[in-house]
Design a protein around this nucleic acid. Structure first.
Length: 220
DNA sequence: CAAACGATCGGCT
DNA sequence: GCCGATCGTTTGC
């Protein structure tokens, strides 16, 4: 069965067919507007994906599995799409990626930002932030909750503990749901990926995507 | 075994 | 805009 946007109604889980497609750049675009869900602590926390980046072995120097090099850390990227790849960055930040493509191809999409929907209080607690009493409080910008790959992972309770977790196992605490279908091309902007200057010409590839009209992205 | 290096964040100037 | 924190992973000796 081939994935078709019309096959999945709003609120339903994204199926295996969505993730195992071979074009990770397209999947990165089509993850925009979808809903990331976790259910830790018996509490459902969700957010609309607003910013993503594609990473693709073997030709992408910025990808951890560049040249299809297998290590203990990157092995999960070679597994079948539809699971988490979470790794520790700078010794502090847990970065959550969605593994894509069939088994053997190491492709993944870094989730860079979400817009909180459900469980906002729990997210704030995980972030050690106090929710603003109103929108005018200086320094209380709600974006500090879930904008940035390290901060959204913390808000959602996602750590390296969950790397390899399938979105389809019966008791999984993490999965994705259809938001409102595939976002139109005109509502998406693209640019260079962040923090990959070391990757030579790959650093210039426009594989970062964000919702043009969202406040919940790094710039804007 | 030692050491360098991050797909970042937040505080400070 | 700049800079330090912080530690698992990876690679080199």
């Amino acid at each position: 069965m081939i994935f078709e946007p019309s096959n999945v109604a709003a609120g339903e889980r994204l199926p295996r067919e969505f993730f195992i497609r071979t074009d990770v750049v397209r999947v990165a675009r089509e993850l925009l507007g979808q809903l990331l869900v976790t259910t830790f602590d018996g509490i459902r926390t969700t957010g609309i994906i607003t910013e993503t980046e594609a990473y693709r072995a073997p030709d992408d120097r910025a990808c951890h599995a560049f040249a299809n090099r297998r290590t203990a850390r990157t092995e999960v990227m070679f597994q079948e799409g539809g699971r988490a790849y979470v790794y520790l960055c700078y010794g502090i930040h847990h970065l959550f990626n969605v593994v894509t493509a069939p088994e053997g191809a190491a492709h993944a999409v870094l989730i860079r930002a979400i817009q909180p929907v459900e469980g906002v209080e729990r997210m704030a607690a995980r972030r050690n932030l106090t929710l603003p009493e109103n929108d005018q409080v200086p320094g209380s910008d709600i974006r500090r909750l879930t904008v940035g790959p390290g901060t959204l992972s913390q808000a959602m309770g996602l750590t390296t503990r969950w790397t390899g977790q399938s979105f389809f196992s019966p008791d999984t605490p993490v999965w994705l749901e259809n938001g409102e279908g595939i976002v139109a091309e005109g509502d998406i902007e693209a640019g260079k990926r962040i923090g990959v200057e070391y990757a030579g010409e790959c650093a210039g590839w426009p594989w970062r995507f964000w919702l043009k009209n969202s406040q919940f992205v790094k710039k804007g």
